[in-house]
Design a protein around this nucleic acid. Structure first.
Lengths: 243, 243
DNA sequence: CCAAAAGTGTTGGAAGTACACCCATGG
DNA sequence: CCATGGGTGTACTTCCAACACTTTTGG
């Protein structure tokens, strides 16, 4: 590196007021409510995008990681203990994404199991993820990314644990899968697939039949409550000799 | 470090209390070289981690997106036209990841096809991704993420297009897959899998046999040179009636 | 006994691996 | 004509969707 380049670099770093870009953490918090995949949104009271809905989150503080930041900020919206899973999604950096000032946003995907109904502030509510209200900034696109991520992971990980309550019947579980995937999932086959993969197990207990009769449904639970990849090499798996 | 940079740093750290951190873009640039998956690294001449190797990249400027930033900065290391694919990987935000000042890093995965040999600066070189030299900051972990991402995508997308030259024989291609996946891939089956999925096509041309004889190998090429998901629903696919 | 819901057995197809065999070329 | 490497055919396996059939309950 020659002198002029070194100077150029120093100058760049000094003038690098770009270092001033604000950074925020956002979360796409999804929950299956009433057989529908819903996302937690917050209604903006002030411009820009006044009256539009936006994702919960906000500024990153000086000494916290993004993960810690989104947990802290979500705590103002939902009880964080209700969050069964949280993972980083993507970082948005379009210079024009916030008209006020340059702001980068790192989005997280959060999941809340179906059986809880967290208390949320008045300006905050659940909306069908497939039919969003008018959204602020690029938040609609971020919700879309979150749905895609969940869809994909349902197929090769045990992420269902984060959508389902601790115990559930197979028809309930197939309902969660249907809501998240957007298509029918046969309970009878889902049971075999997840059992073979070792994701779920029969608790031995069951649920009494409803008023209209029917055989009582067995209760299942997920074996692990942390994300596991259960179906890694869908294709192109290593040769059997290497096992 | 010169005065202007010191001033810039002090200023930045002061305003850090207002929640602003520096942001950089980094890239895990992978290429198969000599049948081995390699990553482009740059040797640090200055502390911290003097003498250790780090990922190419640097500060985000005021008016560029992260994608534009990493392209600009990679241009100083390799001809960007050699990059056959670039995608966002993850954002690292541990407050202690850079001992000098708070810095967030968004990492990208870049791929360079096997046939080119970009000119790189003296302090920059290719290293086996499976056997990294001493690495600065959290860059070793980021390289690991990049390898994992490539591995996964080879199995359900056409990302092979970004590893292979425009035309290739099946044994060459299986070599790239072997290097990236870390296990043997039979050329004969790979051919059928990728043909069935419509990822590759026979160009009609072939390559003369080597000095030791053998049947001439047919030349193939990828149909698409942008990322396509070719094997979406590995499992839990929608019912056939919904097609 | 009938309706309803859950669970089991079975079939068939799709996708991939493994491997034997055939083909084309150079010496 | 033989060694070498590429290509084809095929058997076998795994995984899963589909669907008929059985089981267990409430009225």
């Amino acid at each position: 590196m020659d002198i002029s380049e070194a100077n150029g670099r120093a100058a760049r770093e000094a003038e690098d007021t770009s270092g001033r870009a604000a950074h925020e953490a956002l979360a796409v918090v999804l929950q299956i409510r009433d057989s529908e995949l819903c996302v937690l949104l917050w209604k903006r009271a002030l411009p820009p995008h006044e009256g539009c809905w936006s994702l919960p989150g906000g500024r990153l503080r000086a000494d916290e990681s993004l993960g810690a930041s989104i947990r802290r900020q979500l705590a103002q919206k939902v009880d964080v203990r209700d969050l069964s899973h949280l993972e980083q999604l993507e970082t948005r950096s379009d210079p024009g994404r916030d008209p006020r000032r340059r702001t980068l946003a790192t989005a997280y995907l959060g999941l809340v199991p179906a059986h809880v109904d967290p208390v949320v502030p008045d300006d905050t509510g659940w909306h069908p993820a497939a039919d969003l209200p008018p959204m602020a900034f690029d938040h609609a696109a971020i919700v879309h990314s979150g749905r895609q991520r969940l869809r994909a992971k349902l197929s090769y990980t045990n992420v269902g644990f984060a959508l389902a309550p601790p115990e559930f019947t197979m028809s309930e579980l197939s309902g969660y899968y249907r809501a998240a995937l957007g298509h029918d999932v046969a309970a009878t086959n889902l049971r075999r697939v997840l059992l073979r993969r070792g994701q779920i197990e029969d608790t031995g207990r069951c649920v009494p039949s409803g008023r209209s009769g029917g055989r009582p449904a067995a209760l299942f639970s997920f074996r692990e409550r942390t994300l596991q990849i259960t179906d890694a090499f869908a294709v192109l798996r290593p040769p059997s000799t290497s096992l």
